[in-house]
């Protein structure tokens, strides 16, 4: 092993295995994002509940999740939950941990998005006797969505870059696979570089995608005829 002799043949040899692992990384991110959005929206709405107890319990859950490391949450779900009779596959655990962790962050994004909708919109909805549910569904959320897009996108990209933490619970995602390849062949340069480049590539594509979504999204929100 002497420094910078890049082996193209080895690179192409390991590429399919790493790309295969990239699917796991992307799948975890995709499912994690979906869960995070659902969790985030639920927390955001619970934070606005009319009941003080619901509001404050939600507040403390969000604070707790945000103030503890993701890795601790991953370990807890994977190693401690089986003691309570709940054991899950590494992927499911990973999706759950990412969804919960980033859901807590997203709830703040969603909350400020909802707060950003003018008070007059709530008043008009009330004057028209719309139910709280219809007010959120038809009036508030369609307008709150656009300002939420950039920050939500950033968190999803951040989540994507945190997936290597799932290697700690033996999930065979990109970095874990690269490490295994490295240790089997005593060459780390190519696999790790590949992983880095793939992360960069995916992040750039995702950032561009989010930018496009934001730009094409109507300024008034989801338009309803």
């Amino acid at each position: 092993m002497n420094g910078f002799d890049w082996d193209w043949q080895f690179t192409f040899e390991v590429m399919p295995t790493i790309l295969e692992a990239a699917k796991v990384t992307l799948l975890a991110t995709l499912l994690g994002s979906c869960l995070a959005i659902v969790v985030g929206l639920s927390f955001a709405l619970l934070r606005r509940s009319g009941f003080f107890l619901v509001r404050s319990i939600t507040y403390w859950i969000v604070e707790f999740v945000r103030s503890t490391p993701l890795l601790v949450q991953i370990f807890f779900l994977y190693y401690v939950m089986p003691e309570f009779g709940i054991s899950m596959s590494p992927l499911l655990t990973g999706v759950l941990a990412l969804g919960l962790h980033y859901g807590a962050y997203l709830s703040e994004v969603f909350r400020s998005g909802i707060d950003g909708v003018e008070k007059g919109q709530w008043e008009a909805s009330r004057a028209l006797n719309l139910s709280v549910f219809d007010t959120y569904k038809d009036i508030v959320l369609p307008q709150a969505l656009r300002p939420m897009i950039p920050a939500t996108g950033n968190y999803i990209i951040a989540m994507f870059k945190e997936t290597p933490q799932l290697s700690a619970i033996t999930l065979l995602e990109m970095l874990q696979v690269a490490k295994i390849i490295g240790s089997e062949n005593f060459r780390y340069l190519e696999p790790f570089t590949l992983v880095g480049v793939l992360y960069l590539l995916f992040s750039l594509i995702a950032a561009y995608g989010i930018h496009c979504v934001e730009r094409r999204f109507p300024k008034e929100g989801i338009t309803l005829k």
């Binding site: 919109q121 008009a124 369609p142 307008q143 109507p218 929100g221 338009t223 309803l224 005829k225």
Partner: peptide, 8 residues
């Protein structure tokens, strides 16, 4: 006014 801006 408080019209709903995202609706026709």
């Amino acid at each position: 006014f408080n019209l709903f801006p995202h609706m026709s």
